[in-house]
């Protein structure tokens, strides 16, 4: 376990997420609980964002259900290493369905950010991109720097198969930018923006 190394990674989470969501078009975005949810909100709150406040381990399967229901839309899951580690089996579930419109981005700072910055397993030898490959993802990569991020963007926007990117980011605690907390509000605004008024 090396709890120090991620303090020197060059990519900053807020800049990465702003880059991912710039020119997002009509992309649907699910964020795992904690810092990832604050990151997508800092990039610009949007009715087509679904930031989770709980349900740890559920971001990827939630993105899968959404992607299967909306095959014509891009779906992006943005989550953290701790949240991803709790739902690793869901990578095999996604790979089996293989929705072409789903991208998964893990913001991997090798720490649990909401609970006191304890190290996660990725500060040791756990390699999330290798796990995604082993689960059956056809397109996987680990991104370490700006050049890698720029190269990966077209896969997120226009990939023809489910994409898994583990982005190594600096361990830091940017200011909180909180989305609405009420689940009913988040659900209603998302469905209204995507599906229109209920019949």
């Amino acid at each position: 376990m090396d709890s120090e190394r991620s303090k020197h990674y060059p990519l900053y989470r807020r800049q990465v997420v702003a880059r991912l969501l710039r020119d997002r078009g009509d992309m649907l975005v699910v964020a795992g609980l904690g810092a990832s949810a604050w990151d997508i909100t800092a990039a610009g709150d949007d009715p087509l964002n679904f930031p989770l406040w709980g349900a740890m381990g559920g971001a990827v399967p939630m993105g899968l259900g959404l992607a299967l229901s909306q095959p014509g839309r891009r779906v992006l899951v943005v989550t953290g290493d701790g949240e991803m580690l709790m739902g690793l089996g869901s990578l095999a579930t996604v790979a089996l369905q293989s929705p072409a419109n789903l991208g998964i981005v893990v913001l991997d700072n090798e720490h649990y950010g909401e609970t006191g910055m304890q190290s996660t397993h990725t500060a040791g030898n756990a390699d999330l991109a290798a796990m995604a490959i082993a689960a059956g993802f056809p397109v996987c990569d680990t991104v370490w720097d700006d050049a890698g991020l720029e190269a990966a963007l077209p896969l997120i926007r226009n990939g023809k198969a489910p994409v898994f990117l583990n982005i190594k980011i600096r361990a830091e605690t940017p200011p909180l930018v909180l989305p609405p907390k009420q689940g009913v509000v988040l659900k209603n605004r998302f469905r209204l923006a995507l599906l229109g008024a209920e019949e």
Binding site: L28, A55, A59, P61, M62, S69, G87, T93, K187, F190
Partner: peptide, 14 residues
């Protein structure tokens, strides 16, 4: 996983 999957499905209209 199924509980989360079906929440995502519902968001998307399924």
């Amino acid at each position: 996983e199924g509980v989360a999957l079906l929440a995502g499905a519902w968001l998307g209209g399924d």
